[in-house]
Design a protein around this nucleic acid. Structure first.
Lengths: 343, 343
DNA sequence: ATGAAAGCGCTAACAA
DNA sequence: TTGTTAGCGCTTTCAT
């Protein structure tokens, strides 16, 4: 027999299912010491394994947290997942991971899978600003706890946690300018990602602070992948644009940009500096050529998880928007107090 | 109401649950066209979502593949998971991810969680050679399909897929020697990991081929983490060991070794070269200072998954041990034919 | 302290 | 074509 059930144990001992169930759940008050011991022993010897499926069906809960991310290959996603996993596993939840692969349809499919499998809560970093609004609404109507992280949607009255894109972006560009760069190419994200706007605003305001005229030609909007970053640089060369630095929307774009620039024989950062947001501890360690703002991913994971667990415990918990802004690291220099927001 | 059930739909339409169930499963043969349409429509308008929990309890299957890895922060683990996820999600399975964190107890706990939640199959990269043998046996007795990958256990007659550690290791060390290094420090893995033995054998044989005497002092056995790698180097300095290259067991050790060496003012790879196995595409791209053998992670994921799916379809499918040996990449030079195994 | 019975939501014989 | 019934494995009143 593949799995033994409480029924089997009950039969073996000539007692009722209920008593077995109680004993196995450590109900000391309602089972005599001897029977309890007897049950626990035979359960062990028969190789009993509680069927979570049945428990969950009854409890109408899966003890699973769904995490939905646009991609899984960057250290950012990994660290976030690891951070969440660490916390919730201690509370008896498992995590189920899905990728949208930057496609709203895939995102929706996976969300529906989450709903169908009755996850207890969902953490999501969206791939599109508007495409799946109705699905989010659906989730909320079903009272499934939902928390957005990193790529959030401002219009939605839902708990979310993200970093201050504007100020970090501003600071990155300021950093480039202060290291002598003036012609900064900005590889921006697509319009359907909220963060794009804030980061581009940071870019513009930093230029303004140093009275560098804004040149729209130096802003290239494209996808967020490695190839997009590479193509953006290639395209800049085709157009004959002159630039001494590149400010990318994503890490992945930065990888592509770096690759393309190096193929063209540029030294980094001597000839062209590259910088990006979403730099994790790992990537700052790892890509010394690319200047990056360290995201406090672990903290983001902790905050998002705590928000979610709150909602799981009490769905009427207030919706909160938390913007992480505490600490930024550029290369090896730690900056505790980011520059003021007023340009 | 949070979720509507087939019972609700049946009641709303004044028909029986079974018909609703049939219709919702697209049983065209046994439901009239009109009722089917009617049912599908009201299901949609009522916001019906199939309760997988119930379906799974009945089907005694979760449609979940459990993946258990020692850690999740390296690109290796990530790419593997992503590769598996891509394949199985197309077949209607989800993946559930757990980490052993290099601890046998955690590994066992997570395996039991997998058993309890009735996963359809398990992919595991072990953290210890012998510690959990009884748990693996248990899983096999329960006829839960199990496939080992990367960190496999030779003694167990269970399907597994790994790369040829010996030959890759041999090749890496040969590569170091041919680039002029002679005093090669080997940061080995712990004895309880199978792969350690093969890799160290490759190290010794490569030395032998070039008639470089084997110096046991130059082999440091330690854990597989970043800090272990760093500590190993530190310790080598303390001992006053002289070395011009470091051959690490894991990528993570290599990161630590690199950090420590750089803190001591060494240029890499000019002063001291570092190389490691388990280098993924990403890490070779990313750590140009560290020479690495590219693992064909994606292929490993594909092979392991296919082995597992075979077992899921037919548990009596033959156990296979597959050793990936096709292609190795060092930096940017591709070597299609690794050197012969005879030293 | 223990047992009987109902039910979580769904599917699949078997009947009609 | 549709309905009735039983049951997946478990928990939990309600009796005893």
């Amino acid at each position: 027999m593949k799995y033994v059930t409480i029924k089997d144990i009950a039969a073996a001992l000539g007692i009722s299912k209920s008593t077995v169930s109680r004993a196995l759940n450590g109900d000391v008050k309602n089972v005599s010491k001897e029977t309890l011991q007897k049950i626990v022993d035979t359960a062990a010897s028969m190789g009993y394994r509680r069927n979570e499926l049945a428990v969950n069906l009854r409890a109408k809960s899966n003890h699973v947290i769904g995490i939905l991310v646009p991609e899984i290959t960057t250290p950012f996603a990994m660290s976030f997942i690891a951070s969440v996993q660490k916390i919730v596993s201690a509370k008896g939840y498992r995590v189920s991971i899905a990728f949208s692969n930057e496609s709203p349809e895939t995102e929706r499919m996976n969300l529906e899978m989450f709903i169908n499998s009755r996850v207890d809560g969902i953490l999501i970093s969206t791939c599109h600003n508007t495409a799946n609004l109705s699905t989010y609404e659906d989730i909320l109507q079903r009272k499934i706890p939902l928390v957005f992280f990193d790529r959030t949607i401002a219009e939605l009255p839902v708990s979310s946690v993200r970093s201050n894109d504007y100020i970090k972006s501003f600071f990155m560009v300021e950093h480039l300018i202060m290291s002598g760069k003036r012609k900064i190419l900005h590889i921006a994200g697509p319009n359907h990602i909220q963060n794009t706007i804030e980061r581009t605003r940071g870019y513009r305001d930093a230029l303004a602070k140093f009275r560098i005229p804004f040149n729209p030609e130096l802003v290239v909007q494209c996808g967020v992948g490695v190839e997009d970053g590479s193509a953006a640089i290639e395209q800049a060369f085709q157009k004959g644009l002159d630039f001494d630095a590149v400010f990318c929307f994503t890490e992945t774009q930065a990888f592509g940009a770096k690759r393309c620039l190096q193929e063209h024989g540029f030294a980094i950062p001597a000839d062209v500096a590259i910088c990006c947001m979403s730099g994790t501890i790992l990537s700052t360690l790892v890509y010394p050529q690319i200047t990056a703002v360290e995201q406090q991913v672990e903290e983001m994971g902790e905050v998002a998880t705590s928000l979610l667990l709150d909602k799981i415990n009490d769905f009427s918990a207030p919706e909160q928007t938390i913007i992480l802004n505490a600490k930024m690291v550029i290369r090896n220099s730690t900056v505790e107090n980011p520059p003021a927001e007023n340009a």
